[in-house]
Nucleic acid binder design. Sequence first.
DNA 1: GTCTATATCCCGATAGAC
DNA 2: GTCTATCGGGATATAGAC
Lengths: 208, 208
Amino acid sequence: MPHSSPVINDKAAQILQGAMQEFLQHGYAGTSMDRVAATAGVSKPTVYSYFQDKEGLFQALVKYVAQTRCQQVMGQHNWQGEPAEVIRRLATNAIETELQDMDYQNFLRLMAGESGRFPQLAQAFVENLTKPAIEQLTAYLNAHSELGLPDPEAAARVLLGSTVFFIMTQSIMHGQAIMPMAPERLVDSLVYLLTRSHPQQGDQATER
Amino acid sequence: MPHSSPVINDKAAQILQGAMQEFLQHGYAGTSMDRVAATAGVSKPTVYSYFQDKEGLFQALVKYVAQTRCQQVMGQHNWQGEPAEVIRRLATNAIETELQDMDYQNFLRLMAGESGRFPQLAQAFVENLTKPAIEQLTAYLNAHSELGLPDPEAAARVLLGSTVFFIMTQSIMHGQAIMPMAPERLVDSLVYLLTRSHPQQGDQATER
DNA sequence: GTCTATATCCCGATAGAC
DNA sequence: GTCTATCGGGATATAGAC
């Protein structure tokens, strides 16, 4: 249930919810503390009583969202089955899920856009989201030496990077109408490239 | 139509230079017209005499940078040689060049960060930079059917996406110290994955 | 503890002098 | 054509009433 917004009885969390809405929509510099307070349903001095200043609120929000997403990313995947099927399932789920999650896409926009001015927040993003994902993928590919991948961690980055780039070009940068591509084509090619040495019944990409 | 399509003469270029410095550093909302004028070495009304308003200046700047980069990306590559060597050269050059080009990284930050509020500019970025790059790579892979790639365009997106993701995690998001990886490892794996069916003397990735 | 009201400053955009 | 000076608005942050 990723869309249900939890009941807020703590005021700090209530403020964070308002801050999330505003920061994700307007960016850091484009967000005013007035509107954060209004959206959160409190007055401005209340915001300042819970957070030191605008920058402190922003940092608290980013770490809150990153940790929430972290728990969401980890552990919910199904790693059972043939490697080709597992890779296909992982890539398909990631793409389909993230293509429809506008909050997550706005979060990526925000992190990329502010990464130059808030390097420590960008690092927290990498530490809490990118790195665990790479590590899980690497461990899986490492455990399946029959795939014949000389460098599982590099292969994991190819896999994750291709899907992230797909989300970026197609939806975040609004390239869907300019250079369209069905997600299945990318997924098929990834499965094909990663499991070429270990073909499997039912792989469509290997049939010419 | 004084402002619909800004003429780029000496003074307009001078203003664009100042605008580039400010917008790349502080983002759209974080940039003030006062500082653009100061950085460009002109007065504020002069800026408004060449560009309609802040948004018009921003759009002119982005299109100016995108077209400049476009000419830089196209045509300067060397497509001669064995496919494995060409792919290695392309990926290596792209990564090494972009890792050191902080202006380009800041431009990527800006485009990603503002893509939600300026969708038409994000599309211009895709149209002028991403799409041509994909098309060139696709045409090359298509011309080398001996690689046995069932979907060259999808493979091109894997190739470009992997390198872009590498730049993103390592430098733009400051992940170099958190999850380091030598560029050669990614390049070797890409070459390996794309040319597995057509191995070549001197491929290092298979010897690890 | 929370809000109303305010202090102080800077922003985008322009009128009018040179 | 270009600049000085300025207007109205909205920003961050806080003092003081309830």
